[in-house]
Design a protein around this nucleic acid. Structure first.
Lengths: 245, 245
DNA sequence: CGCCTTATTGAACCCCATCAATATCTGTGG
DNA sequence: CCACAGATATTGATGGGGTTCAATAAGGCG
């Protein structure tokens, strides 16, 4: 109780908007002092976007960076003939947008409804210079994304369609609700943030194969599905086994 | 001429070993002052390893970091039943080993004969604290690896076997000889640093499919092959077209 | 040369893609 | 509330690209 009070007092100089924000703790904003946060927050704007909004086509240089507060962002690459591959998913409180120049062009799009906290580009870059801890956070996120990318590579290159679907569902279960600890949880329930097309583009499959594998898992009681989007997983360990991990 | 001399004088305090080293310019060592390099070089050791040497199995924490001076290192992930996927290739002057903890386990192995310049772990970590530029270099490399990882994901998920092989050969042509500029070059010649098995594990194929696609490209005059390893590419732009980029 | 590793080639099969039809969901307007 | 339309998802039939199994060939090194 008094601890709670002490915490409030300690946070009193932190902008109101930031106080409940996850990025303040696990995200990049944790690198900043209350003072810096206050300065930065004068230039931030929070905005919501519906699913399918295109946030960045990384051919053009971005004009601002953002923290993802809510929802899921998909990063994808497209070939000349339209074939598409989702190369990454971002969940709150990930940092969206990339410092330095990128050779490869990746497109960022809202997979679900999303809420973003935007910073102007130059404010971030100024802070990068005077705040090494911020750079460390970005490095940490980049390395984390690299881990995820490499997991996905194993999935794409070496797993069967069934293993792919199980891996995907297990991934979503791990990320969708950051409050539950996957290592302790035995079951999970969530709404899929991706359409069947997105899932197919994530796993390097067709929507038909995605659909067929989902019915197969439904019939085998590995998952239950309600209204196409709502998924219930009775046994996460069973799912994990099927995923090949 | 006098510029050349000036450069020599300016480099006189840089350790002899570092003067010709690519890592000094394009690699992480470029972040250090001559003084820091001298201090660090007291603890570095240069070693050679034959192909197939296992450098790190990232389950165990690494005891040292290194710069790759020569050769190719492959990063791979393996499933319980033995299926394997190469998730990254490293060329000189890449930094090998990873700061912070990694969740995913990646194994680093010499694909060809390699030369490494080792630093003790704590020396690197001490330098990370007092030298923000070093962290920036690591961030830059991590983001570069992320780009490569995402290119490979598109290849793994959405390309045909033929496109995969072309993409791979184009990738090697770009990296194997850093002195030539791929944008200007019209042809290329190199020794493959990977066996057919490695190529298959890189592209998510079997060695039979790799072999068949190579003969197909040979018969179509897209490549010439000598002694299994030596590759001649008469037209890089033709190869690029086939790769689907 | 002889042995072992690595690579090529062939034949049969299978998983997943493709094409096509039907079903379900979602939101809008009467 | 229901009807309707467009988007999204499921299910079926068929075919092909890549795997699998098997045999042969070529390269590398003592």
């Amino acid at each position: 109780m008094s601890d709670q009070k002490r915490l409030d007092i300690h946070n009193s100089s932190v902008p109101v908007l930031c106080q409940a924000c996850e990025a303040r703790h696990k995200g990049v904003c944790g690198a900043m002092t209350p003072d810096e946060l206050t300065r930065l927050s004068r230039h931030t704007t929070i905005r919501q976007h519906p699913a399918k909004t295109i946030l960045v086509t990384e051919e053009e240089p971005v004009k601002s960076y953002a923290n993802l507060l809510n929802g899921v962002v998909k990063l994808s690459k497209t070939m000349a003939d339209g074939r598409q591959q989702i190369v990454g998913l971002q969940f709150a409180p990930d940092f969206v947008g990339r410092p330095f120049h990128s050779e490869s062009q990746v497109c960022a799009e809202a997979a679900s409804n999303v809420t973003l906290c935007y910073f102007p580009k130059n404010a971030v870059e100024a802070m990068l210079k005077e705040q090494p801890e911020l750079e460390r956070r970005l490095l940490r996120q980049a390395l984390g994304e690299l881990d995820e990318a490499r997991d996905l590579m194993l999935t794409l290159g070496r797993k069967s369609a069934e293993e792919k679907l199980a891996s995907f569902l297990y991934l979503i279960a791990r990320h969708i609700d950051p409050t539950i600890d996957i290592r302790k949880a035995t079951e999970a329930t969530f709404d899929l943030p991706l359409t069947r097309t997105d899932i197919a583009d994530f796993l390097g499959l067709t929507i038909e194969t995605v659909s067929r594998q989902l019915t197969k898992m439904r019939k085998a009681d590995v998952i239950r599905v309600e209204n196409n989007r709502h998924i219930i997983i009775p046994s996460l360990s069973r799912l994990r086994e099927i995923s090949g991990n």
